[in-house]
Structures are given as C-alpha cells and as structure tokens.
Design a protein around this nucleic acid. Sequence first.
DNA 1: AGTCGAGTTCTTTTT
DNA 2: GAACTCGACT
Length: 667
Amino acid sequence: MELPSSFNESPAGFSPIDFRAELNDEQYAAVSAEPGPALVLAGAGSGKTRTLTYRVAWLLTHGVNPWEILLLTFTNKAAHEMLSRVENLTGVAMHKFWGGTFHHIGQRVLRIHGKAIGLEPHFNILDQSDAESLLNATIREDDKNFFKNKDNPKTRVISDIISLARNTLLPIDEIIDNRYNYFEHLADKIRHFNHIYQECKLKQQVVDFDDLLDHWLKLLRQDEVLATQFQERFKHILVDEYQDTNKIQSELIDLLGLNHQIMAVGDDAQCIYTWRGANFENIMTFTDRHPGAVIHKIEINYRSTPEILNLANGILSTQPLGTGYRKELRAVRSSNLIPFVVPVMDGKKQAQFIMKRMEGLFDQGYQLSDMAVLYRAHHHAIDMQIELSRASIPFVITSGVRFFEQAHIKDLVSQLAYVYNPQDSSAFQRFTCLLPRVGEKTASRLHRLVLEQSGEKNISPIQAFSVDEVIKKVPVDAQEDWHDLAYTLQDMAAAVGNRTPKEIVKITIEGWYSSYIRNLYSNWSDRIDDLESLVGFAHRFDDMTELLSQLVLLNSEISDRDVDEDFDALRLTTVHQAKGLEFPIVFIIGLAEGLFPNKRAMDEDNLDEERRLFYVAITRAKDELYLSYPMINEYGSPSMRLNPSRFLDEIDREHYEILRIHETTDW
DNA sequence: AGTCGAGTTCTTTTT
DNA sequence: GAACTCGACT
C-alpha cells in the first residue's frame, strides 16, 4: 500500500518532482520544513525513509549542493538505500554526498585530518574480535597473572566496560559503579588497562570502532578552525534512527550542527540499542539542546493492517508513562486476519507449525520471500533451520558468520592490511600464527624483530622478513612457509602504488596463501571461490586504504554470489537485524519468558527495552502476524518448562486469537 | 617456554 | 560451532 511513486519514470531527463502529490500532509510538512533544527518523530511503517529521501531531494531542488549535505545513518545498508533512491529521484550521484554510518564518516574525517592527533592516513581498523585480542595481549603483557585469577573479568567484559564508557562519555569508574559494581575493586586496574591499550593502538597506527568516533570528536574539540570549517560546510545534517544514537554520537551531531541545521529523524519507541550506549534521552531532550526546533509527527501507517496496529498500539500503551513521546499509529489499510498466538510443545513443533502454515499461504498466492521468521537471539532459530533443511525449503539467514568475518577472508585481509601498515601487530599475528609451531608468543617476538631489523638496516619491515637475523628465529617447521610468505608480501609491496587494489588482492591470493589453504582445508576450493569474489569486490575501489576500511566496516555486506535478490527464500533474522524491514507475513518465535524477554534482560531489569524490541518485531508485519512460544525448552541440561512471555499477557485479549496446535492440522 | 590437541561451555542484540 | 581451559609434547 505504498504511495504512488514516480521512480524511474523518466530515465533520461529528471522531471521536476511533485512533492505535494507524492507525500502525505505529515510527510510534506517535514520534507518542506524551513531551515532550522527539526525533530521528525516517525512511527513504524510511516514512510520514514521516504521522508528522508524526499527531504534530500527537496534540498537539492532548492539550491543546496550535494556536498553541503551530511547524511548519517545507523547501517551501511540504510545509507546506500537512501542515497540510491535520491539518485533515482534527482540524478545526483551517490558519491557526491557525505553519507554513511557514523563510523564510516569518522573514518573518512580521520584519514584526512588524523595527523593532528597522531594518526597517519594509512591507519588500519580493527574489528571487534581483533580489538579484543589486542586488548587481551596488552593486559597479559602488563600483568601476567591477571587472568589466572578466576574472579577477574574476562577480556570481553573489560572491553565492554571500556567501550561503554567511551560511547557514553562517562568515566570508567562510573560505568563500573552503575553496571559492574562487583568489579569496583578493579576500577583502577581497568582504567590502567584502558590507558595502555589506547597507547598501544596509537603506536601501531590502528584504531578500533570506538576510536573512529572518539578521535573524531577529540579532533573537532581541539581544533576550532577545523570544527568551524565542518560547521560551515555542512549546511544540512540529516540523522536517521536518532533514537539509537549514543552520547558520543549526539555530541558529534550537536557540535557539527552548531548552526542549527540538524534534522533528526527517529522513533523513541524503537530504541533498541541501549546495550551499546544508545540513549533515548537524546531524542527526548533534542528540543532543549536545539531551541526553536520544530517537531514533525508522522503517524499514518501504510504498512500494516489495523489488527496488527491494534496490537502494536497496545504495546505502546503499556510503556511506563512519561518515558516517551505520546504517539499512536493510525491505520489506512483495510482489515485482515487478527494476529494469532500459537502455543506449541517445543522448538521442533514450532518449526513444523510454521511450515504447515506456509503451505496455506502459498495457496493464497504468497511466496517464500514474502515471509520472515523473527527471533530474539540467533540460537533460537536452530530448530527452524534443521526442519527447513530437512524439508529442503530454501531460506536465507542474516546472521552467524558474516562473509568478511570468515577465517580465510580475515587471513587474507590481514596480509593486505599488514603491507599497508607494517606497525600493525594484530595483522602480523593473524597470518604468522598460521605457520606451524608459531603461536602468539613467537609471533610477537618475530614482529618486534622485524621492526628492529628494519630500523637497523634501514630497509622496509617487509624486506626485513628475508634478513638472516630474522630467519634464524623462525621455528624450523615454519621455515618453508616463511619464505613463501615473505616472497608474497614483497611482491605485494612492490605492487603498491602502481597496481590497482584488485590486482594486489589477486597477487595475495595466488601467493603463499593458496598453497597454505590447500593443505589445510578439504573444502579449499569453496574458500578459494570466496577469495575470488573478494577480487570482484576490490574491483570497485581505486584506493587500497578505502578498500581495507570497507572490509572492516561493511561487515554485513555479503559475497556477490549471495546478492541474488530474486531468489525466493524464507528469511530468518533476529529482530535487531529486521529493523527497518517489512514482510507481508511475520512469524515471531520463542515468545517465552527467558527467551523473549531474554533471561539476562530480566535479571538486569531491562524489560522496557525488550518490550520496545517486541514492538519493533510486531511492526515489521504487513498482512499477517503469528506469535508462537514453545512450552518446553530442550536445550539446557534438564529440559525446562517455559511460561508464555509476559508481553503476551500485557496485550489486550481481544487483539489476538489463540491457535491450538492440534486444530491446525488442516491449514 | 611455547605450541597443539582434546575436551568443555556457552553466547542477545552490532558498527 | 567457536572460544576457552587444561595437560601433553616439542
């Protein structure tokens, strides 16, 4: 039930857009808003993306230049989608905008201006797991016995604490006080670990995800001239999913938008990232921080049936008073089936019910790609995957190991990263540890030795791989591989500057790594195929640094062979990853206490966020909605009885119908 | 001292 | 299935 769209009607010339006709009153008011701070409260399914897209188009047709617009989004996908829609609408090419995730833009700023805070333009970006291993290594080096004590927190926890502190701009002590008070005695220690970790990264010219925001903010704060330059350059700043911004992000936006040119778009009812520091205070206090801000409410819902919206509104009304903007989704679609609550015996029965129901839906003309199964946590989908595979029903699962996070991809990328930044010990360690009898300790010794020799003999670190003093220290079993590896890296280094990224990637694959992988994996040809598709990906880049950043930041992008959009398959996804998507048919599974709401959220009293997550899940559905819960959980050593989710109890009984599984055999 | 293999224990959500 | 621990082996 989308509004009429004139996309692609005039492929050659771009005829003027009739904004009034293509938008409803609420949307039009936001799109055509006068310059000045604005807060757009867009309910689920109300055409938020459309509004943002048309706003950009509006600005462009009213004399604003593309480079004067900064578009900040939560995911790369959202940025891409919006900008390509703008391109279709106005003919202005995507790359003319500064648009992307906060991290992406931060990276871009730091490449250009990072020198001021000690970052060379070729710095490498560590992903979550690289960052954690580096932190781990730093801690071990500083305090050998720290992890021997079982009562001490694991690296993961320390990393979480540090990250939360940085994202909320609060001191580490305060984070520990508030959320980890059982580690109070370690506050000094953790602060110290953080300190040496930051130093270590800077020395190696690497940054983690948080640095991309933190350094960016630091840069703007310390260099007033630069800050002013950005403030004057970006005449319009548009922020998507504003409710999920954290303190450091809102600080960045406020600083960049000092001239009151921010349009923030969001929905406080859909704030689901507080665990990552998101703070919906940002959206609640926006008008205080930006006096004169105009609030635009967009509430007409084009997506869902009234029955589904009744349920969604019911959830909204159970939210504690005063915690959000008052809103109600208004339906325009005609009535359809009432949502069903489906108790089932266990996960297997749950999967079987869904498959049974799917058959009925096929008869009604729906296809697999119209349907999605949503769940709270990845492992809730195991039974679903098993049963679907057994019945050979095609499905895509947006989770698990992402393409760029697979071992062989990271192995290869580490070699590329190292050639561009030989200080990067994480990259060095990643590929050296693949050699026989080389582990963490040997790797770091070799890395030090290589740098030392490079300094002493005044040669590049990569040439130093072949120096006798280094070779002597390589374990005997690894000698042969070491030579091949050194040769490949030197080949790559020689190609830097005069070959394209694509060609360099090719050299890397065809070098040491392909012979290594052949001996290691039985499915090596699949893995080589993956690597080959990396060559295709690299083809899009002229600049290796840009390619390397994207490989880390774009972790949701999948390999080219999976990009087939027409492939008819059922979608399995977590609720978090389903944010912003819509499906005619939605099954939400595992709606039991301890699963959804998640046990940990119950322990930590985070039920409001779980409820918002449930709200997000429900509002993905267009035509039909099924809410199911297993009564028994066979995972966990003694099978446990499960109670239906409290969220089901909170819904008015008249808004759904209970479906007993034995009655459904005829569907 | 450091690597490697076997066995155990869990994971919410993501840039 | 991967991330960690532990004991054996170099």
